[in-house]
């Protein structure tokens, strides 16, 4: 029998008030999850969580038995962003617990120079040769790009480098694209350089609708997400059979403890699907990517 699947909580992709973020992580200490990703992936200007908050949060989570991973920025342009990435990589390496970082740009892989890391969902790893290469450069875990079908994940899993873990984005609004442009600031007619952190008003992003009111996408600063929440809770057995070790749940501002509980119950039930909470965001659920279809599709 294979090891039980683990549950990971992905990095918070939105700008949450510091108190809300601290409360969220405090609650995770007692939640049935195994891994927690910390840090900022989307926008380097967001600083509501202060630099010294993160080690404090990490210590509390580790004391509660969680593995902590520091995520790094996906779109790195400025020297200051490279410096922040380097500081996170160095700090993660210095942790006594063998703390790791998640690389979301090749800059982090280059800087780490062989130190162990998690290959995040924003590194483009689509085939065995690339996975082998990244593993030889220190990747110990691979978070699959969201658009990969399960068949591809299974093939890469079957031929995986020894010891490499595979993680899949199993729940949340899908991170689909990055831009130099801040769409949230733009939607409020504010320049990016004077955004006033307007994204802080939208703890789950701003839903973008088609002109016939179909929830389509979500604006989250320079990131564009799906409006629908990808929910793979019905596919847990298939994911397990494909060699997936870890399911990532992406934080949302409301009802997240119930999501964690439902996934935990589904994993533990082995075969039976736990009752899942109704979607709390407009857009409902989607799961098409797993079958190689449009990501927005949802199997009946």
């Amino acid at each position: 029998m294979t090891r039980p699947m683990k549950l990971a909580v992905g990095p918070v992709l939105y700008l949450w008030e510091r108190r809300a973020a601290l409360d969220f992580y405090a609650a995770l200490c007692d939640a049935p999850v195994d891994i927690v990703y910390l840090g900022e992936v989307v926008c380097s200007k967001r600083r509501l969580m202060q630099r010294e908050d993160w080690p404090m949060v990490a210590r509390a989570l580790e004391a509660a038995g969680k593995e902590v991973v520091y995520s790094t920025l996906a779109l790195i342009e400025a020297e200051s962003e490279l410096a922040t990435m380097a500081r996170i990589v160095d700090a993660a390496g210095a942790e006594a617990s063998g703390g790791r970082f998640e690389a979301n740009d090749m800059a982090a892989v280059q800087y780490a120079a062989g130190r162990p890391f998690v290959a995040g969902p924003h590194l483009n790893i689509y085939n065995e040769a690339t996975l082998q290469l990244l593993a030889s450069r220190g990747a110990r875990r691979w978070v699959a790009p969201v658009e990969l079908p399960l068949a591809t994940i299974a093939t890469l899993g079957a031929n995986r480098p020894p010891g490499l873990e595979i993680e899949v984005f199993a729940y949340g609004r899908l991170p689909l694209a990055f831009s130099a442009r801040c769409f949230t600031a733009r939607s409020h007619n504010r320049p990016k350089d004077d955004c006033g952190f307007i994204c802080g008003d939208y703890p789950d992003g701003i839903t973008l609708y088609s002109r016939e009111d179909q929830p389509f996408l979500t604006l989250n600063g320079i990131q564009t997400q799906s409006a629908a929440v990808q929910n793979l809770s019905r596919e847990v057995d298939a994911l397990r059979a494909a060699g997936v070790d870890i399911l990532r749940l992406s934080p949302q501002s409301q009802g997240f403890p119930a999501v964690i509980d439902a996934f935990r119950a589904t994993i533990d039930a082995r075969g039976a699907v736990a009752t899942f909470p109704a979607p709390s965001l407009p857009g409902g659920y989607c799961d098409g990517y797993l079958r190689g279809e449009a990501g927005i599709d949802h199997a009946e």
């Binding site: 924003h122 790009p145 694209a177 098409g288 449009a294 990501g295 927005i296």
Partner: peptide, 11 residues
């Protein structure tokens, strides 16, 4: 290289 909008809508 960092945009999956098209596959989200069309596959």
């Amino acid at each position: 290289g960092r945009c999956a909008l098209s596959s989200y809508a069309t596959g």
